[in-house]
């Protein structure tokens, strides 16, 4: 049994999310970004997004290249459960690609092309003194070395602590609190790398928790986030774990920050909602 990519894994992922309402909701219109991306380094064997209550589903590819599934539930309902289920083949970690120097990245043509990955967003805006303290000292002319150093610095600045931050939390807020989750590690890394002129984007997806995962055993996975920086080519980096991005990582969406990759967004009429809780079950098949 082999996979498309040598050293890659075949992973089965079931991502459950949704809302429960303090009463009835109706006229609900939603967009889900739960479909893994088809990439030169990642093959999607099967994928489906479904909702309970059932609804007619449509899909489109957004500006960032992510497949969006939309569905509308007009009739009254007490909860909404959305499930993304996929089988994906991943590939092993690549050696860093691209040989542009940090100086070359400052070229007007590069800045113009990747402006969206260089400009701060509300979640990745940092004051100059933070940049001067944490990013500038790590800047070498090699973007790969700079990115690795920034990622390591972020791990020294933030302590991983689930439940301490929310999806709205900015890099600055996480830095002030000294704690965060993968999203905060990624936002802070993005903010620092952009501040020294390295185009950087946010990646959302999944991570298998075990480096030596057993085939057929289902693990409680997580909805994960990491980053990609540009050095002539795009390179992935996982600032939360520091581990290489490879067979255990599944890419779903990319964008400037979390706002561009929100897994489930929508509007509805009716009673207030609370999150149903997110579970990701991930099984290595090969």
């Amino acid at each position: 049994m082999s996979t498309f990519f040598s050293g890659g894994w075949r992973l089965h992922i079931v991502h459950d999310t949704g809302f429960v309402y303090d009463g009835l909701a109706h006229g609900s219109y939603n967009e889900a970004r739960l479909t893994p991306a088809s990439l030169p380094t990642q093959a999607v064997l099967s994928t489906e997004v479904r909702a309970v209550p059932g609804a007619e589903r449509w899909s489109y590819t957004d500006y960032w290249g992510t497949k969006v599934t939309t569905f509308q539930i007009d009739s009254p309902h007490e909860s909404l459960r959305v499930t993304g289920e996929s089988t994906v083949e991943t590939s092993s970690a690549r050696t860093p690609q691209g040989n542009l120097s940090c100086t070359a990245l400052l070229d007007e043509a590069v800045v113009d092309r990747f402006y969206e990955y260089l400009a701060p967003t509300p979640r990745t805006l940092l004051p100059e003194e933070v940049r001067d303290a944490y990013a500038i000292p790590l800047l070498s002319d090699d973007p790969h070395a700079s990115a690795a150093a920034v990622s390591e610095r972020v791990r020294s600045l933030l302590t991983y602590a689930p439940g301490t931050t929310e999806v709205q939390t900015s890099a600055q807020e996480a830095l002030d609190r000294g704690v965060g989750v993968c999203q905060d590690f990624s936002h802070l890394s993005i903010a620092l790398l952009r501040s020294i002129g390295i185009p950087t984007r946010y990646v959302s997806g999944y991570l298998h928790p075990h480096e030596e995962a057993k085939v057929g055993e289902t693990a409680r996975g997580e909805s994960h986030a990491w980053i990609e920086y540009y050095a002539g080519s795009w390179n992935a980096l996982d600032p939360t774990s520091g581990a290489a991005v490879g067979a255990r990582h599944v890419v779903v969406a990319r964008g400037r920050d979390y706002a561009d990759v929100t897994p489930l967004s929508g509007i509805y009429h009716g009673a207030p909602a609370s999150g149903l809780g997110v579970t990701v079950a991930i099984t290595r098949l090969r």
Binding site: G54, A55, E56, S59, T69
Partner: peptide
């Protein structure tokens, strides 16, 4: 259009 009906229940 680039919007396709993906599936129907």
């Amino acid at each position: 259009s680039s919007l396709n009906r993906s599936d129907q229940q």
